[in-house]
Design a protein around this nucleic acid. Structure first.
Length: 844
RNA sequence: GCCGCUGUGGCGAAAUGGCAAACGCAGUUGACUCAAAAUCAGCCGGGAGCAAUCCCUUGUCGGUUCAAGUCCGACCAGCGGCACCA
């Protein structure tokens, strides 16, 4: 039955087509083409060197979408690039003495040519961007200058994580349990340093509000961003200071209704008024506390298990509503960066203040309860309620009181309504070599100057750099590079040695793809407005906040600089789930990663079973948003499916004179041959189902593949024990197989292309039109009618379609089974859903 | 602690409120083979029964409905995010 001379050799077939696709440039995106545009984007990878099956998922999902859209007639932009700056390259330089550039370029070459291409992806490589190339980061620097020009880039002193051994600032992710990730014996310090920031907070409200426009985003991602931005509405209330009438302390609160319950004030230890408010007898204790706080890492400081600490300053504040004197303390639970850096302590109605007051014996004064009566408090009463001990506001409900108290305070001039966001400005300085240099110059006389635009790029020095891993950025030691003339006074000046956070590079790469090779500007306005916004973005949920929020911010800022004309960069977002596998290191199923020792490489699997089988398994295992566990056994199952199609083709070619068949077959001609008619129905049902499942509303590839499997199974069943075929049978089988190949094309692109060619199809199957289904084929005249009694199935019968409720009821009631069960019972009613179900309801 | 998501066969999963378990993995039986592998075909949630057949089953407990895996409420478990944000 199976010709033995034709073996499925995925390795040969796949490389053959990958070369041909590249040579014939069939994946090229054309600017301003007359077809409608479709921008399909996948988050560009960091070139760590070796992709595994875990990485493969995101590229496969995005590729299926791109290929499908091309077949639907879109002008598809599906680009790829590399997020190529970052610490691992520098660490490789330190450990293995390979220059970061060399290491990165080697990895890119491997990933691009040995891995991404071998997956069968359909990128337009002409638009490749590599963020560590000068022709890219020139524009990163240019964009920084635009931000600077619009007062969106600024310097300020801020507390940062500092490793004294590395002599550098660390990102939060590089601090593990309060220790430096490279020196687990070194506690990371909090240090005030002058750093560059981008003013993302200017867009806090718009970033929050426009989440509503993103109907194509997963709710959970929007929710995470909403929480991250953390809008809160409240009031700023200004407290006076006893005996120092010139000093005012503004505090921020969302609970102005508790103002009569304030019994102390807490300032952040770094608060600028601290030294002025510290009395002589408290000086020593206060200074010791500030020093101790500075030594704690942010993680230690914020950890909830930590008991409250603090010291009194010795001064007293005056509550403007009550004129009461209350003590002023400092404690590390007040954060300088949020609100005003000062908190009014209301122990009766805030659990943190309650804990603080209990520990230090501060008065607890209840002003709200459920019924307006006071009682013993075992913990803070934080719910809304009725006011008491609050002067003229007694008896009001707390929500009401909030408004009235603010109104009163506003009139008297000691409060104002205020909105606060949890979002902080974005610290972008990194004391590292392998990043985009911040294009500014320091002059002793003129201070900070931006580099002139026509002097860009500020290129990283490539020679004479030593990577020792100690003593801060290698750029500091590159004397020649450091030295520069001041753009204002032409005096000897020096360059900024910090480089930018790599998230800057990835905040605009999707814009650059629209015009990747432009040497004159970052991107042409017309091109960026033609291609953007991205129609479908695919990436991991780990970027739900960082990258996606930064990119939204960039888009809005660049819109305001009139460089583009849209508000949101990504219309639809798909967050694919992780690929997991058992890790013996962790003793459990964990995310596939090199450090957990649970990776499956791509090369070995591709060599033996092919990329098509791997793609099918990854898509089949679960819907894209869910986590999947890699199973080589399961992937081999998809390899069997591929081989089954392969064998089916040769079987049909040899025995049934298989050929390409476009168009439909009149259903009337099939009335005499029910088996054939059924096969035709299955083929068309498969076209319909796969088209729906693969569509942008759903993206449920697992069920799409299941439908194709069913179709193949049906074809096998049809040809079982069959030796000869009639003309009409050949036609139906040809119709079925031709359409199967087209449906398969986005999922298993090499197999589909190879069999398309072997069927005599013109190159390329990927440039064929996505198939339609024959509606006539799906019309059936029989249905399965389910008979229920009391909601339980008792029978299923095949009957004529389109019968009336009366008729169906009659059929059901005349069944022997029904009669037997009805005996002696009272019939309550019969529910009939035509062509579906009859439910007979009896009493008890 | 707060917010969110998810609980269905041995496993991955499927099911516009209308036949629970499609499709695949593992297992198992048969055909082919001297044999094995591969392949092709069949079986494959649990229980009772020689059998036809019957009963039970979507984390637990309630509710709505003629009908609930699906909708509502409470709880339990697992995962994820945030975590002293005043």
């Amino acid at each position: 039955m199976i010709p033995s001379n034709i073996e499925y050799k995925p390795k040969e077939i796949e490389s053959k087509w990958q070369e041909k696709w590249e040579k014939t440039s069939i994946h090229k995106a054309i600017d301003f083409d007359k077809k409608p545009k479709y921008y399909s984007l996948v988050m560009f990878p960091y070139p760590s060197g070796d992709l595994h099956m875990g990485h493969m998922r995101v590229y496969t999902i995005s590729d299926v979408i791109s290929r499908h859209k091309r077949m639907l007639g879109f002008n598809v932009l599906n680009p790829m690039g590399f997020d190529a700056f970052g610490l691992p390259a520098e660490n490789a330089a330190i450990e293995r003495k390979i220059p970061p550039n060399e290491w990165t370029k080697k990895n890119i070459d491997h990933m691009k040519n040995k891995q991404l291409k071998r997956m069968g992806t359909s990128y337009d490589w002409d638009r490749e961007v590599v963020s560590c190339n000068v022709d890219y980061y020139k524009w990163t620097q240019w964009l920084f200058l635009q931000f600077y020009k619009h007062n969106l880039a600024y310097q300020k002193d801020a507390p940062v994580n500092w490793c004294p051994k590395c002599q550098t600032v660390l990102a939060n992710e590089q601090v593990e349990e309060g220790k430096c990730w490279r020196h687990d014996d070194t506690t990371v310090e909090r240090k005030m340093m002058r750093q560059w920031f981008l003013k993302i907070t200017r867009y806090a409200e718009e970033l929050l509000r426009d989440l509503e426009k993103l109907s194509g985003w997963p709710e959970r991602v929007k929710l995470m961003q909403k929480n991250w931005i953390g809008k809160s509405e409240g009031a700023e209330i200004v407290f006076g200071v006893s005996a120092k009438s010139d000093i005012k302390i503004p505090v921020y609160t969302t609970r102005p209704d508790t103002i009569y319950g304030v019994t102390f004030l807490v300032l952040a230890p770094e608060h600028p008024l601290v030294s002025e408010l510290t009395t002589n007898e408290n000086k020593e204790k206060v200074q010791a506390y500030i020093k101790q706080t500075a030594l704690l890492s942010e993680i230690e400081r914020l950890s909830e298990s930590k008991a409250k600490t603090g010291v009194p300053l010795g001064s007293f504040a005056i509550n403007p509503f009550t004129n009461q004197k209350i003590p002023i303390w400092i404690s590390d639970y007040a954060l300088l960066e949020y609100g005003t850096g000062a908190v009014m302590g209301v122990p009766a109605h805030d659990s943190r203040d309650f804990e603080f007051a209990k520990k230090f014996g501060v008065e607890i004064k209840q002003v709200i309860s459920s019924d307006g009566l006071s009682r013993e408090l075992l913990k803070a009463y934080i719910e809304p309620g009725v006011l008491m001990n609050s002067d003229t506001f007694n008896g009001l409900h707390s929500e009401d009181a909030k408004r009235k108290i603010i109104q009163y305070g506003n009139e008297k001039g000691f409060s104002k309504t205020r909105i606060t966001y949890r979002l902080r400005d974005w610290l972008i300085s990194r004391q590292r070599y392998w990043g985009c240099p911040i294009p500014v110059i320091y002059c002793d006389k003129c201070g900070v100057s931006p580099v002139n635009e026509n002097e860009l790029p500020v290129a990283l020095p490539e020679s004479g750099i030593e990577f020792t891993g100690s003593g801060g950025s290698p750029l500091l030691k590159s004397k020649e590079w450091l030295s520069v003339k001041c753009p204002k006074c032409n005096a000897q000046a020096r360059r900024e040695t910090d480089t930018m956070d790599t998230f800057i590079c990835s905040s605009y790469y999707y814009l650059r793809y629209s015009d990747a090779k432009n040497e004159k500007i970052a991107f042409d306005k017309e091109k960026v407005n033609y291609w953007l916004p991205v129609d479908q973005y695919v990436g991991g949920v780990e970027h739900a906040i960082l990258h996606l929020l930064y990119s939204r911010f960039f888009t809005k800022a660049l819109r305001d600089s009139e460089l583009l004309n849209f508000d949101e960069p990504f219309t639809n977002l798909l967050s694919q789930g992780m690929v997991t596998m058992f890790s013996s290191k962790e003793g459990k199923i964990a995310k596939m990663s090199k450090s957990k020792g649970n990776v499956v490489g791509t090369t070995e699997f591709f060599d033996e079973y092919g990329a098509d089988a791997a793609r099918l398994f990854i898509l089949f295992a679960a819907p894209p948003e869910q986590e999947i566990e890699w199973s080589t056994q399961g992937a081999i199952g998809q390899y069997r499916f591929v081989e089954r199609i392969w064998r089916l083709f040769f079987n049909l070619k040899e025995n049934a004179n298989l050929q390409l068949f476009e168009g439909f077959i009149p259903v009337e001609t099939l009335h005499e041959t029910p088996l054939l008619k059924d096969l035709y129905r299955i083929a068309n049902y498969t076209i319909k189902s796969v088209s729906e499942d693969i569509s942008s509303e759903k993206y449920i590839f697992n069920t799409a593949i299941a439908r194709m499997t069913e179709m193949v199974n049906a074809m096998y069943r049809f040809i079982l024990n069959k030796k000869t075929y009639s003309d009409i049978e050949i036609k139906i089988l040809s119709f079925s197989f031709t359409n199967l190949l087209k449906l398969l094309a986005p999922f298993a692109p090499h197999l589909a292309e190879e069999l398309w060619e072997k069927s005599g199809g013109a190159y390329s199957i990927h440039q064929q039109k996505w198939p339609d289904y024959d509606k006539q084929a799906l019309v059936t005249d029989e249905i399965d009618l389910v008979i229920q009694m009391g909601g339980k199935k008792i029978d299923v019968l095949t009957t004529k379609k389109g019968q009336s409720q009366k008729e169906l009821e009659k059929i059901a009631l005349s069944l022997e089974k029904v009669k037997a069960r009805l005996d002696g019972k009272e019939l309550v009613k019969v529910v009939v859903v035509p062509d579906k179900i009859v439910n007979i309801v009896v009493k008890q």
